[in-house]
Amino acid sequence: MGNNSGNAYQPRPVSIIRTLPQINEHRLFQLKLEDGGSWEDFGHQPGQFVEVSIFGKGEAPISISSPPTRLDALEICVRRTGRLTNALFDMEKGSHLHIRGPYGRGFPVEILKGHKVLLIAGGLGLAPLRSLLLYLLDKRDKFDEIILMYGTNNPDNVLFKYELLGFFDRDDIKYLYSVDRDEEGIWKQYVGVVTGLFDQAELSPHDTYAVLCGPPVMYKFVLERLLSLGFPKDHIFMSLERMMKCGIGKCGHCAIGDKYCCTDGPVFPFTEIEKIKEAI
């Protein structure tokens, strides 16, 4: 757990190196460990999360947005929603907070090696997927073709905009994106839900792995599409979100059938959850 105290609930001190505004109510925070530890020893994998504590405000699970190939800082991308996230948005460079982790089962990078990878993100779902995306790009020769499909509700809500724009100039990643609505008519790409992007990509389901992260409604439609395209069930991985309190399989909040999202997930192979009614 990268925590020497023996108490799995003990938060570790970190400070904010920099805050980078994203879209409205979303910010990227770069963190530094303040207890002498290093991010290398922290040992996070793409798709894992941390529990973030702010003095007197509580704790919340937040995905790690940066890959283990970039260890200068741990990055988290946060949407302002309530008590803890409000307090985080009041913080600035140099402010102190706490984290514990890394927690959960991340994306199956070993399985993905040598294969094509299709990443499908919706909204804030890009936050955890970015850790995998950057990992794939940093170890580009280990993977075959990389396709990113990203959908947001409107053109103003594209996260990591500048990073993504850079992908248009690269020929080692195919980037497709969509917006649900474009009332001002400024969007030059696809308008409609993210599944519409499937018509723009040539996919070879049998040597491609699909990795999903997005809001609950997205899964149902994307899964239907993937299965009808002939993706084998064991080629589909998805990151699920649940209310979480402890992150270590004790508080019971995140239970999904016979699994716990915090320890058995948050990334699940579709084959593990397809029969659990409350999963998707």
């Binding site: 007197g56 509580g58 309190k245 004790k250 508080c251 019971g252």
Partner: peptide, 8 residues
Amino acid sequence: TCFTVSDF
């Protein structure tokens, strides 16, 4: 054994 955690 389910529990919640709160800060005061």
